[in-house]
Nucleic acid binder design. Sequence first.
DNA 1: TATCTATACTTGTATAGACAAGTAGTAGCC
DNA 2: GGCTACTACTTGTCTATACAAGTATAGATA
Lengths: 242, 242
Amino acid sequence: MEKPARPRALYEQIKQQITREIDAGRLKPDDKVPSETRLAKAFKASRMTANRALKELTEEGRIIRIQGVGTFVARPKPDAALLEIRSIAREIADWGGIHSCEVLLLAKETVTPDIGEKMDLAPGTDLFHSIVLHKDRGVGVQYSERFINPAVAPDYLAQDFVQITPSDYLLQVAPVQEAEHVIEAVRCPFHVRSHLQISAAEPCLCLTRRTWSFDRVATFSTMISPGFRYKLKGKFNKRVSQ
Amino acid sequence: MEKPARPRALYEQIKQQITREIDAGRLKPDDKVPSETRLAKAFKASRMTANRALKELTEEGRIIRIQGVGTFVARPKPDAALLEIRSIAREIADWGGIHSCEVLLLAKETVTPDIGEKMDLAPGTDLFHSIVLHKDRGVGVQYSERFINPAVAPDYLAQDFVQITPSDYLLQVAPVQEAEHVIEAVRCPFHVRSHLQISAAEPCLCLTRRTWSFDRVATFSTMISPGFRYKLKGKFNKRVSQ
DNA sequence: TATCTATACTTGTATAGACAAGTAGTAGCC
DNA sequence: GGCTACTACTTGTCTATACAAGTATAGATA
């Protein structure tokens, strides 16, 4: 599970130094990064080692390399919008509806092996569990179930989710580093169906989301909504080739 | 603008060969991929060159390498990467299936006001229209309908889409600058249902995609598939805050 | 002034060799 | 049988070198 048995590789050190320079703001977008030969000399490495470091940073989108010219710090890409986490409340407001919500469950439970695997938590420890029904003009439009890592949001159970949605609260207390979304079309399970007042045949969009905060899995949630659409738009920066 | 002035690099050839073996199903998930030394010998290349090919394939998630053991074809992940545009053929190959496809329609038509608006084309001008059914082991798994801007892919009608999928062909001739995806859960329309051999109640994922190339709308397509999932994962830039 | 040219520097690709480190199997030993 | 040591093979990292190819600049030339 843990990685670093090997003494940190030289090319990793070079990568890390450049990454730090960028993160610290000492290297700004479009600034020139030292050439391979310079880096090689500075780190007492061969050019190939410096080359590997720069090549990987290029693939990670942190720098841009132009043959014959040099290496430059990449401009940050605006693709976060693709993964932007919008609250259902805002969604409904944008649509012109009136949002309200009902808390169906809010409890501390024990980690099951199933959830434990997904959230990287040891079975038997505690986690928070909530089920919230979002409504538009009183009609259920989204059933959302969440599992929360208590280490990331210890006060989760004390919140009043009629005032603030779980999504909004979590975004406040736990900055999202990384997110994973899985989208599929499903038939609505019975216990959910009764809240959404739809027929068994109605196709529903099911969005399963995991988020990471502080280098840990923070939430694992499932949102089921009939008649919903998700829209993603973005520019491609990398070569999308085949 | 065009890229391939340089004769195709050797490591690219090695990558391509392995990729083809996987896509064609000759190499299945968990199958062993030839070792670096074998590949080097086969291609009359040095081990470092074979290493580069395998390293990049690893980063692209197509193979898995285990020190001291060997290199293996990566196991199924039936989640489509949304931001990349992956071909359904590869998706099926990853899953361990056998892909084939059938062209249901391939024609030049006249722009209707409806499509004209979405593709930013004047009604009355020409556009290409195709309907392709993708199959896994002969069973329909995806019905995809496309409208193509002739200015972007003038030779579209002359292609043999049994040999190369429309998606792959378009990626070759028209680099995607930007893409917009709309995802929804739908009931399958009758004319589509007969090809996919599913019941009317089966929820299907409907992905509507617009792509831009050369600063114009290049394609407008709708893909309907039952039992599909799309997966998105990504890091957030620092200031995604709220 | 405008244009060509030589040069210096950059990245891209490739080679041949080296050693480290991890794994699996085999042979031999107790 | 159970253990150890050895071997053969794998991937991971690194070096030193080489040539190709793209770019920018200064200087010479028309």
